[in-house]
Design a binder for these strands. Structure first.
Lengths: 345, 345
DNA sequence: GATTCGTCCGGTAACGTTCCCGGAATTGAG
DNA sequence: CTCAATTCCGGGAACGTTACCGGACGAATC
């Protein structure tokens, strides 16, 4: 088996007694072929164990059947969900997915982008690390951006979560439970996601006369360790108890929860925490981390749909889609209002 | 930009004033070319924004620069880690990774395997779902199996974790803390991983005169929900407290922990739980889930290395590599021995 | 000075497929 | 019955690259 030459379309054609053009028509579901000839060819292909060479197909037709997905980290639970959503949808469209992890490094992102281009993917789905960098070479092929950099690339398709709505969900939830002025643990300040998040926070709290400057804000990477450190700084700065914290990611929120416990404080009694992601890990903590759930799989699926639309030329102008978040209530936020009522009674 | 024809190697050759053969030599780092000519060509390529067409390269040379990775689920934290390890290593070898999730479905696995083959990947890394199925078509190209199916494919490269050593680690740890006869939550019985796990368990406990039949065993899928249900059945069957449970995966162990809490029992006081995976989520529960950590990233990295070895023809006979596990102690297992000593004192 | 050798380069044929075009066979209309 | 239209098929070129072969040139050897 290992030595036998791979079967090509001419082998199939020969066995079926037709020309290779005809064989190609049968194998690519072209319309201009009779039903019986098609059947004959397919049988021959089956018998020979023929497998279409997608490299050749891509080279001749320009359709490689592959899409590129460049994200920060496939091992990060949020991005893994996005990838899975994209994968399932790509399968439906008959496309394979070339996945790369840029690891939040501008340089690796650059390298990976040239890799996917050289692989002649039909289009790219990208969460840009080098957000501010305009790159003309990116504009010349179908591309969908995912994440918060839509504003910087107004002429490109974009899909992400509706941060404004998500923040409103979280803030409203906190407010209803008596947490009027939560502390914030935000992501790296230079990232666009940060300004978008802060803008949403400002939008919500502005209506209540609270500017972000009134809020205690600490910065953190998207890791539990960094979140734990940030929470430590908050507990130092804000001696008031009870305290509420809105974290920009679940992993950060979970880290904050660990810091809380480490200080001998109780969540949710002393410190209420709400996260932003909705990953599975948040359901395992005690208490479970109440969080705004981003539509991760849907983001992956939708971005593939949009990319296919671009590829097939069905889309003339840039669209920007925000998928809405939902709140997963688990138990990391105390209800001060109810507690007060109980006390009175 | 969008309309401009893509630059090819002949454009580069023309601009550099050489033949396309020479240009190809420069671009592919071939040795038989003078330094200055190479430099000239590279400059021309740079100026034109030339990008090598890997489809064409693959088609002519037979080296597509792509590897296939077919795993059960990229959104599962364990497999995401494996994928990440593979990705990083593939990058080092200058290869891109085509990733598919079979979702534990034999049919989807079959479909994805033909997809990667049609994409003309240079080799495949596979965790087989249809474990018992011998498929001659798999034998005709470089391939590395990951997971527990090594025994069934003795003529194929295999890399996985050292289950025997991992089980010993867990069982020894339990035994040292006074849990002599733990209950087991195992995975789907038809999977090879199950028999391998049970064999390892039998091997360890056999030395103490305990056969697996003496142990309470419940079956579960690799999800927390299923683990929770299995733990419920164990608590019904085994009224004895304290109780110890060895779970075959962390997600299952975390589910078991939730079941414990739901019954009003305390972990680790009433129920000790030890997991098997070492995923990040296990560090967030209270108590953190003590677990045997499988070398997930290393599995991914090693499998890529082995695959490249096969591709380059450096490997003549099948190798089977078991990477060792280590124990992550977190707090889900009580120490009965110490407790007894304290009581005495 | 003739021969050999090594280095470097150009021309041409592949790789496996699809696309385009022309032609044969069949069908339908008048 | 004729002619046009339609359906279906075959032949060849093309996609962008590398493999192979042969030749030019200078250096080294006798």
């Amino acid at each position: 088996m290992r030595g036998s030459r791979r079967q090509t379309i001419v082998d199939v054609a020969q066995r079926a007694g037709v020309s290779k053009s005809t064989a190609a028509r049968a194998l690519s579901n072209a319309p201009e072929i009779s039903t019986e000839t098609r059947k004959k060819v397919l049988e021959a292909a089956q018998a020979l164990g023929y497998e279409r060479n997608h490299l050749a197909v891509g080279m001749r037709s320009g359709r490689s059947g592959m899409l590129g997905l460049v994200i920060p980290d496939i091992a990060n639970p949020f991005w893994a969900e996005v990838a899975r959503g994209a994968q399932d949808r790509a399968e439906i469209h008959g496309r394979a997915l070339l996945i790369f992890s840029s690891d939040w490094s501008v340089e690796r992102e650059r390298v990976h982008l040239t890799s996917v281009r050289q692989a002649r993917v039909e289009g790219i789905i990208l969460n840009r690390v080098a957000e501010r960098q305009q790159d003309s070479r990116l504009a010349d092929m179908p591309m969908v951006m995912i994440g918060s950099s839509a504003a910087l690339f107004p002429d490109m398709d974009n899909v992400g979560s509706n941060i404004e709505q998500g923040v409103r969900l979280a803030a409203e939830y906190l407010r209803n439970r008596g947490h009027l002025q939560p502390c914030l643990i935000v992501g790296p300040r230079q990232r666009l996601a940060h300004s978008r998040f802060m803008h949403a926070v400002g939008g919500y709290y502005g209506a209540y006369g609270i500017t972000p400057d009134n809020l205690i804000v600490e910065e953190s990477d998207y890791t539990p360790e960094s979140g734990e450190a940030a929470m430590g700084r908050i507990l130092d700065r804000a001696p008031k108890r009870p305290l509420a914290v809105l974290a920009v990611s679940d992993l950060i929120g979970l880290g904050a929860m660990m810091a809380t416990r480490r200080r001998g404080l109780d969540c949710p009694r002393d410190v209420s925490i709400i996260g932003f992601d909705g990953i599975q890990a948040s359901s395992f903590s005690t208490p479970g981390l109440t969080a705004v759930q981003k539509p991760s799989r849907a983001i992956g699926a939708t971005s593939v749909d949009m990319l296919i639309d671009q590829i097939e030329g069905r889309n003339d102008e840039a669209r920007s889609i925000s998928l809405s978040c939902k709140l997963i209530e688990r138990g990391s936020v105390s209800d001060l209002v109810r507690a007060a009522q109980v006390e009175v009674a």
